[in-house]
């Protein structure tokens, strides 16, 4: 089957977008409350669901056969490099401002989830339209 023909693929893109939305909601919630003290229950639940979606996506992705894995990892590693810099910058800003350890840990977790989720989304979005690897 040609790679550009419509294939039925798992909803990796949709789950990745939902993950971004969860990270954004958690980030906005925390940014709106900082620098004062606030309950971390909502952001932690939010982060847990986001991590769950990323792990689900990893499982769904690993089951796709055949797939253009070379393209997936080519795009993914460049995107990872870019988003590690962006997430690193934001972690640096919060650390520079002496954000308390609890919120800092949750924020770092959200930014790490963000930095893993986006390369997966970009890699999948490109690889789905490429010819699958011959080894698959």
């Amino acid at each position: 089957m040609s790679a550009t023909e419509e294939r039925t693929l798992p909803p990796v893109g949709e789950l990745a977008i939902a993950t971004i939305a969860l990270v954004v909601v958690g980030g906005v919630y925390m940014a709106a409350h900082l620098p004062k003290h606030f309950s971390l229950v909502i952001p932690i639940i939010d982060l847990a669901v986001a991590v769950g979606l990323v792990l689900t996506n990893v499982v769904l992705l690993s089951r796709i056969r055949p797939f253009a894995w070379r393209t997936f990892f080519l795009v993914g590693k460049w995107a990872l490099a870019g988003y590690v810099v962006i997430s690193g910058m934001l972690v640096y800003v919060f650390a520079r401002d002496h954000t308390p350890a609890g919120p800092m840990a949750v924020l770092a977790g959200m930014l790490a989830t963000f930095a893993i989720d986006i390369p997966m989304l970009f890699g999948f979005s490109v690889a789905r339209f490429q010819e699958p690897d011959r080894t698959d």
Partner: peptide
């Protein structure tokens, strides 16, 4: 900014990349 981020990163940028690779 959050809503724009979801749209830009989740929809716009993947489309941009997929076009370039195509």
């Amino acid at each position: 900014v959050g809503v724009m981020a979801v749209i830009a990163i989740g929809l716009l940028e993947p489309a941009n990349l997929a076009v370039l690779f195509e």
